[in-house]
Simulated assay, not measured.
Amino acid sequence: MSILISVEELAERIHAGSNNIILACLWEAHSGSGFPAFNSEHISTSRFCDVALALSSVPSSKTGRNPLPTKANLDRWFRRWGLDSKRQVVVYDNFKGLYAARAWWVLKWAGVEDVVYLDGGQKLWEAKGHQTLGGPGNLSTPGDLTADLGHMPTATIEDVKAHNGILLDAREANRFAGRKEFLDLKAGHIPGAVNVPSRDLLQEDGTFKSAEELREIFANVGITSADNVIAYSGSGNHSAQAIIAMNIAGIGTPRHYVGGWSQWCADPKNPVERGE
């Protein structure tokens, strides 16, 4: 089953009147800009996905900045979106693909089988000359899906501590090396981790690099299979994008430590490593 959908293919489907469910994945809770941005402009037929409220739980030092959502919360949003087993879900954002990647991973984890990621997102959609609309978006129709958690492999902080394989950190190089940190309590990374910044997996237009290029990038840090790999980032967004890239490359799906650096560094007992 495909992971990506191109801007051109989505435009053709919308023009033909297809019944895709399109979710615009924007960040609302912290910035307050998600729904106003959606209301200002979005891809035709989209429905608003508040990433912070729909795809996360309440943050804490024990769970990290963006812990996984509960079944009850996802069920509410599934009803709001009208998710249906007979309709494909397309996720996109107007940022760097990070929120769409989280949506793809969380929905797959919650048992939604047919989810695709718009390659290049709204920025490429507009760059290709496709129009956007304003307003509250499409009204949902009743769907038949409810959340069935656990369909993607995950790792706990205890799993990470006991791990003897490859630990993949998908944050940017400066955060990994501990040269800067603007989101979490400490700078650095989990000892022993290797770094593949998720931005290095994308081309200049925001689309993913080819499968061959991605395989080479991951092979450079010793990853040729998802077996015995745990991926993490700050709180599960960059790492979700890396997991998509690993699937495009044919490497497979690693375990995902969603608590990530935000959970790890909040405990003063956990060791911190800095440097490349």
Score class of each variant (00 low, 15 high):
Asn19Leu: 14
Ile3Asp: 06
Ser33Trp: 15
Asn20Arg: 04
Ala266His: 03
Asp267Cys: 08
Leu139Met: 00
Thr63Ala: 15
Leu55Asp: 11
Glu8Ser: 11
Leu55Gln: 11
Val115Cys: 12
Val112Thr: 07
Arg199Lys: 05
Asp148Arg: 09
Leu23Cys: 00
Ile5Arg: 06
Arg79Ile: 04
Ser239Arg: 01
Thr224Asn: 05
Lys209Gln: 14
Gly137Thr: 06
Gly120Pro: 09
Leu202Ile: 05
Asp205Thr: 06
Ser239Glu: 13
Leu167Phe: 03
Ser40Arg: 12
Asn94Trp: 10
Ile217Pro: 06
Leu185Lys: 15
Asn19Pro: 09
Asp200Tyr: 01
Gln122Lys: 15
Leu55His: 05
Asp144Gln: 02
Tyr92Leu: 00
His30Val: 15
Ser239Thr: 06
Leu139Ala: 03
Ile157Val: 14
Gly135Asn: 03
Leu107Asp: 03
Gln122Gly: 09
Glu181Trp: 03
Gly34Met: 12
Ser239Cys: 13
Ile157Thr: 10
Leu149Ala: 12
Trp261Gly: 01
Val116Trp: 09
Arg215Gly: 14
Leu83Asp: 00
Arg65Thr: 01
Ser85Phe: 05
Val116Arg: 13
Val116Tyr: 06
Ala11Trp: 08
Ala266Lys: 01
Leu201Tyr: 13
Ser225Arg: 10
Asn66Ser: 11
Gly259Arg: 06
Trp264Leu: 07
Ala24Glu: 09
Ile190Arg: 03
Ser6Thr: 15
Pro136Ala: 12
Phe182Pro: 07
Arg79Met: 04
Ala240Gly: 11
Asp84Pro: 09
Ala16Glu: 14
Asn270Cys: 11
Tyr99Met: 10
Val51Gly: 00
Gly259Asn: 08
Ile14Arg: 02
Gly252Lys: 02
Leu118Met: 13
Val90Gly: 10
Met1Lys: 08
Pro197Met: 09
Thr207Arg: 09
Gln131Met: 10
Pro142Ser: 07
Ser210Cys: 01
Thr70Leu: 02
Ser262Cys: 04
Lys96Arg: 10
Ala37Met: 09
Thr156Asp: 02
Arg65Asn: 06
Leu53Pro: 00
Ser140Asp: 09
Leu98Pro: 02
Ile14Met: 00
Glu12Tyr: 01
Gln88Val: 10
Asn19Ile: 06
Lys186Asn: 14
Trp77Met: 07
Cys49Thr: 00
Glu126Leu: 15
His42Cys: 09
Ser198Pro: 00
Pro191Lys: 05
Pro136Trp: 14
Ala72Phe: 01
Asp75Pro: 08
Trp109Cys: 04
Val58Thr: 13
Thr253Asn: 10
Val272Leu: 02
Gly134Ile: 06
Val51Ala: 00
Leu145Trp: 02
Gly178Asp: 06
Asn73Arg: 11
Glu41Thr: 01
His163Leu: 10
Ser18His: 09
Leu23Gln: 00
Val115Ala: 11
Trp77Leu: 08
Gly250Ser: 04
